[in-house]
Each structure stands twice: as structure tokens, then as C-alpha cells.
């Protein structure tokens, strides 16, 4: 390519035309653009953390593990029929926050939670509240598929049974089939319901766990890295499932895959060192984030 020669003639013509001096084609990339004036050190939440129709609300939530202050004043809503993703580097508090939403942190020694978290307006940390039904209302799907060492059928039927949602065998059959259908697993397992759940593939096991979660009619489903142990095809199936489940449930998902957050969620929350830095519509967070830390993290500029 004869660009150098072009430049030379360019300058030549410029001189003969007696014009303003030529712009020198420079190889230095331009400086970073001006963003909104949000200080990198600012730790208050950017963006509106409320929604018009909240299912769960968290206000000024603080979590301590012993002396360690793990989460600082986090407030956010999970709306009806929406998927909210929580992203951030390891140790940012996103999983800790997620676990507060169905009191999973209660089981950890030395863990203290303050602030207010409500489900449909009711304080889930209220004295005397039974966490067992709470965890049916707010189900959790974990990173590693963890089916019970029982048959596929019993994996699903167990929950409805202990929560007294079914009384007859026919009802039980119905719940098992409906849950597996909704989790998109029915066709793959309907002929081997008596076989152990642990014999399924990883992706199938994860869908089994999702079926188990939805069998007790939850309102909110929490997912902590639900695809990190799965291959891309199994991941795609789970993501498709999440999109379908959104019609009936509210979903909070913690993920390390930013692309997954962008694909599955309607709102995204970015956590950093225990602070909720920014929250907003996923479309905005991934095209035009407002906090410099969010931008650095999602563009792969961290640390």
C-alpha cells in the first residue's frame, strides 16, 4: 500500500494550496473519552435500584463474617418476572448477597446480617419466621448440580411431599411430570424415572435441580453460578430455560460470565469489594455503564 507516498504528495499539495497545515496522520490512539463525572472512588450505588413491582426488596443490607464487613449498605429490588444478574470480581460479595435472600447465611458461624429484606412485603428476617417454607418460596440452584442420591422421581417428589403440597400418588405424579416439563427435562428422563438422579449428565442434573426447585412453587429462584460446571450446549439450554422460567418466577443469578449476564438478565448489578457499585437495565450496563469501575470490569480492564 502506497500510503507513505500519498502522505508526501498530500503535504505537497497542501503547501501549493497555501492552506492550513495538514493534519498529520498519527499512530497514537486517542485519549479515553469523557464519561459522566463519577469519581472512581465513589462507592454509593449508581442507578435506580428500585423497580415498580418488586417481589423482593433489600435495604441497607450489611453482612459481617466475624470482624469482616463483607457487604456494605446494599439496597436493591428483584422485580416480578425479571431476571436480575449480579456480577463482579471474586470476593465482591455477590454470592454472599444472594445467599442473604433466602437466609442461607444463617448456617454460617459468625455471620451477621443487618438491614431489611422483604419478600412480598414481609420481612424474611422477622423473629419466629420459619426458614423452611421461606426456602421453598425462595429456591436456590447451586454451582455444582447436587441431586439427592435418590431416583429422578424422588428428587422431584421429595420437596412437595415434605411441604405437604401433595397427598396422593396421582398428585405426586402430576407434580413430578409438570416440574420436569417446565425444566425441559421430561422427554429425556420420562422412561427412566426410577433411575438415580446422579446418573444423568451434568447439564441434565442441573435441570433436575431446577425442576426440584420449581416443584415446590417458589416465587423467587436464586441461582449461584448455575452454568459454571456445564459445557456450552448445556449452558445454552439452562439459559433458554431461565428465559422461560421468567414468565412465572423472579430470578436472581450470580454469574462470572458477563456474556451470560448480558444474555439472560433484564437488569444487572455490579458488585465491587462488598459495595453495590452500579445497577441498571442490562442493555445500558453493557453498552454505556456510568461508573468507571463497572466499565473497567466489563471491558476486561480490571486489576
Amino acid at each position: 500500500m502506497n500510503i507513505e507516498a500519498g502522505k508526501a504528495i498530500n503535504t505537497d499539495v497542501e503547501e501549493t494550496m497555501n492552506e492550513e497545515p495538514s493534519r498529520t496522520p498519527s499512530s497514537t490512539p486517542p485519549p479515553a473519552p469523557r464519561r459522566e463525572d463519577i469519581d472512581r472512588e465513589d462507592r454509593s450505588t449508581v442507578g435506580d435500584y428500585t423497580v415498580a413491582d418488586p417481589r423482593m426488596t433489600a435495604r441497607q443490607v450489611n453482612v459481617y463474617y466475624g470482624d469482616k464487613h463483607a457487604i456494605h449498605d446494599v439496597s436493591m429490588d428483584i422485580g416480578r418476572n425479571e431476571v436480575v444478574s449480579m456480577i463482579g470480581p471474586s470476593g465482591c460479595g455477590k454470592s454472599t448477597f444472594l445467599r442473604c435472600l433466602n437466609r442461607m447465611n444463617d448456617t454460617i458461624d459468625g455471620c451477621r446480617v443487618s438491614g431489611e429484606i422483604t419478600l412480598d412485603g414481609q420481612d424474611i428476617y422477622a423473629k419466629g419466621l420459619d426458614v423452611v417454607p421461606l426456602r421453598a418460596q425462595v429456591g436456590m440452584v447451586f454451582q455444582k448440580p447436587n441431586p439427592f442420591p435418590k431416583s429422578i422421581y424422588d428428587n422431584i417428589a421429595y420437596g412437595p411431599r415434605i411441604h405437604g403440597l401433595v397427598t396422593t400418588k396421582a398428585e405426586e405424579d402430576e407434580v413430578v411430570e409438570a416440574s420436569l416439563q417446565r425444566a425441559g427435562l421430561w422427554d429425556e428422563v420420562k422412561d427412566r424415572l426410577a433411575q438415580p438422579g446422579t446418573g444423568l449428565s451434568g447439564g441434565q442434573q442441573q435441570r433436575l435441580c431446577i425442576a426440584r426447585t420449581i416443584s415446590v412453587n417458589p416465587e423467587v429462584i436464586l441461582m449461584d453460578e448455575p452454568c459454571s460446571a456445564l459445557d456450552p450446549i448445556a449452558t445454552a439450554k439452562i439459559e433458554e430455560l431461565i428465559d422461560e422460567l421468567r414468565e412465572q418466577f423472579s430470578i436472581g443469578i450470580v454469574t462470572h460470565s458477563m456474556q451470560q449476564a448480558a444474555r439472560v438478565s433484564q437488569r444487572t448489578a455490579y458488585f465491587h469489594l462488598g459495595d453495590l457499585i452500579e445497577i441498571g437495565p442490562t442493555d445500558d450496563i453493557f453498552t454505556n455503564p456510568r461508573h468507571p469501575l463497572t466499565e473497567d470490569y466489563i471491558t476486561g480492564r480490571f486489576g
Binding site: P30, R301, G303
Partner: peptide, 11 residues
């Protein structure tokens, strides 16, 4: 001002 292309963990 920081360069617009710079700063990625993947250089």
C-alpha cells in the same frame, strides 16, 4: 487522560 484502547488485562 487514559488512552481509549489501553488497560485491558489481555494486552
Amino acid at each position: 487522560m487514559k488512552d481509549i484502547s489501553d488497560g485491558h488485562t489481555v494486552k
